[in-house]
Design a binder for these strands. Structure first.
Lengths: 150, 150
DNA sequence: CAGAATCCGGCGAGATACTG
DNA sequence: CAGTATCTCGCCGGATTCTG
């Protein structure tokens, strides 16, 4: 098991005087952890799927398709540890394990959706920025190759 | 210039029937990109700092303290390419480069703050979940060692 | 001062094999 | 079915060096 996350979360000591300072310190603590979950490639999908209904391990595996069995396990453990999802094992054979969003997870899902919404609303601006940037870069590159070697 | 109708960032083909399906596909496109920025260790700090005022490269370097020169450069380039920050070079010696948040960046900063706020509001729940999880795990581990070898 | 280029070590993620 | 354990490999991020 590669825990990766340290124990507890610990409330970082920070001076309330400086708002940014708080961010800085916080960033090393709770926020960083949650952000890592939110940004995680698979976490998002899992949360989105579980927001609809309870699902079994193999269901998630098939639904996400592309995720390795290992990464799904790791992702689910992380989410469970953070209290975002709950894991229910039924002592039957063959084994059956259900995963579902906790109230906390549902709450998080709403916040995530707002982020996704923001991205959707600004995707044109971002795309335009990309195009502009790439064009700018492309306009400077040519310096390197044959600068008028006649 | 920014018509957005044609290529843009590539509007993922997806069936509007399924909401989760949209998430899935989107996750491979724009959302993933922005999420990577948001979750990035240094991006957050840069955005938070620039939200207060324009800053020079070395100012950011010193303010963040812990970031390598390379990663700061990479981070700034990414943010610039996404249109989140703007980069202004003054043709003076010694060189001077100013970075500042664009309107898009300010907009993103607000969304990020809401995420940070959420984390702060729920940090106790998360910490409690961690404690509960670790306890549960700790309670199951002992099975492995000395299983009543009488 | 602001950065580009290069080298390199660690770990995160995938594939595989095994188990209850 | 629902995982664990192990190995390997890619690449991300840090340190260092060089430039305009």
């Amino acid at each position: 098991m590669e825990d990766g996350t340290s124990k507890a979360l610990g409330y970082c000591t920070g001076t309330e005087d400086d708002e940014v300072r708080q961010w800085d310190t916080r960033a090393d603590c709770d926020v960083r952890h949650i952000l890592d979950r939110v940004a995680d490639k698979w976490s998002l999908l899992v949360i989105a799927l579980l927001d609809r209904r309870t699902m079994r391990f193999s269901e998630l595996r098939r639904a996400i398709d592309g995720v390795s069995q290992r990464m799904l396990t790791v992702t689910l453990r992380h989410l469970e540890r953070d209290g975002i999802i709950s894991r229910t094992v039924y002592p039957v054979v063959p084994p059956r394990v259900d995963y579902e969003l906790t109230p906390l997870g549902m709450s998080l899902h709403r916040v995530i959706k707002s982020l996704v919404t923001w991205t959707e609303e600004h995707q044109q601006e971002i795309a335009a920025a990309h195009a502009a940037y790439d064009e700018r870069v492309a306009a400077e590159e040519p310096e390197l190759v044959s600068p008028r070697l006649g």
